[in-house]
Design a protein around this nucleic acid. Sequence first.
DNA 1: TCGTAAAATGTACGCGTGTACATAAATAAA
DNA 2: TTTATTTATGTACACGCGTACATTTTACGA
Lengths: 304, 304
Amino acid sequence: MKAAAELQYTPNALAQNFVRRRSGNLGVVLPLLPKVHLFSKYYFAEILSGIGQAANERGYDLLLLFAGVEENKDYLRLFHARKVDALILLGRRDIPEDRVSLSALVEQKLPICLIGQRFAGLQADTVDADHVTGSYEMVRHLIESGRRRIAFINGPLEYSNSEDRLAGYQAALSDYGITYDASLVFKGNFSRKSGHELAPQIASIHASLDAVFASNDRMALGLLQGLNELGVTYQELTVVGYDNSDIAQFCNPPLTTVEVPLFEMGQVATNKLLGRLSGSLSLIDEPFDVKLPTRLVVRSSTKN
Amino acid sequence: MKAAAELQYTPNALAQNFVRRRSGNLGVVLPLLPKVHLFSKYYFAEILSGIGQAANERGYDLLLLFAGVEENKDYLRLFHARKVDALILLGRRDIPEDRVSLSALVEQKLPICLIGQRFAGLQADTVDADHVTGSYEMVRHLIESGRRRIAFINGPLEYSNSEDRLAGYQAALSDYGITYDASLVFKGNFSRKSGHELAPQIASIHASLDAVFASNDRMALGLLQGLNELGVTYQELTVVGYDNSDIAQFCNPPLTTVEVPLFEMGQVATNKLLGRLSGSLSLIDEPFDVKLPTRLVVRSSTKN
DNA sequence: TCGTAAAATGTACGCGTGTACATAAATAAA
DNA sequence: TTTATTTATGTACACGCGTACATTTTACGA
């Protein structure tokens, strides 16, 4: 060892990984770049940080893979080529193409974990926030502060997030004896623009509404701006969001929203997943499905 | 080839890289996680996206390295261990420790590129935005809209960005015949909090000021909030920012700011750097020092 | 002192490619 | 047809490490 130090010897990681038959890499699949704008970048940055910290602690490097790039489409190939030892997938949607790819991985018991997306019937490891409860708590907060006619702007249903939030919304209404009215549920695509585009529809019925619950902050913001342009102030119609992103804190009015533990989601997913590889959890074990708690953040948008 | 396809043969990337003596990885060094909050995550997300796209096009994978993790401190080791073929460094500061590490890399002509940070005297490849001009244009805009007494909140001088913005500020004042007054230059650390903390000082002289130019949006926002708490409205004292981050667009009032081409910076750095490896630019060639243009974004914060 | 066990040191081989070289087959020219 | 030339196919080896096993040295008790 002394001689090695004197000679500045550094093991060749390539050779090590080769002979060990493992890459030492944890792959992280991100959505195709242009689409990232749909989500906030905040979302990925936070989760990635959580993944990065946990991976480093366990001696794994992080390999970033952008889905949509041809080579990365076929997740299976990433394993066969030994580019990654395990895979975390972010921002997936429940579409046939991904279902096929993911089923193949699951069948072969390869170590993968989905964050923020559930595929019904697919026995894959999953980590997400408890959006049913998060959504429920938000609606409860609105109801308990005297609002009963609550509209809901949902995201695309290919995201299991959207289903979950709708479920929480409905459950809260039901628990407080408010009849669910499907005409109060609108559909956006998580972008600010889609919130903005719903403003005319919502403005036309705003007198009958006590609040609008947008399923993310960006849509809430777009709606607020759109309503404002149509002469409906935020004092007249309460708007709340979801995610607790930066803009929720700093926009006008500051938005009541739901905080999602993104960093922790990354950490937990990584630790559980890599735990399988190091034996603390076997590959044969049941898939895990972790739901981390969310937190209601009350700001002035619900304080009038 | 037909047989290979039938047998579902996939080359072992580990073995390929081993025998080729290259990892196929482009390393990206990010600051220690907790400190990321200093910058906006937006900053890294955008640059990373740019890097990712360019790297993929050139057949390289992205290896994320968090500085501060012991193993990653010694950049040289990353090369010796063949973990990366080239290195991009983000969010570095001009501190002795990094100077030593980086000098070693430069001496050995290893392919590295700094983004957003210049080390005076270090012959390393660099990509940055032209902050001197960006800052100059902002101050010019303020002056031409009738403001003459302009305070400046700068970031830490270990960031070459800060130097550059100060230089642009001074140059614009000089060109318009306004005497530089050092007592109008304040120091923050790019955090919203630091902007907030400067509010009392600035409020006390606000009557003598026409505008405050904060060298990033977060500090501008903090200052605005602080001033507001002290009873100084944004109508009374113009505040502008820098970066064109999300919050600049959505805060109240929307901030006039300077857009930085982060995505492109990542792209350019990657293409130039990997170009060295594929021969279009040799390792012996002079280091490049690219400065991409910024763009002034005028919003209501300078429209009163 | 000797014998036995434990620790240290030494040796050989394989991991799956790329590469260089040797050989065989196909093609073109004489 | 024969020879020269191109193209296809086959073979051997090295890359730098981990691992298993053989060998040597050391430690310790009888």
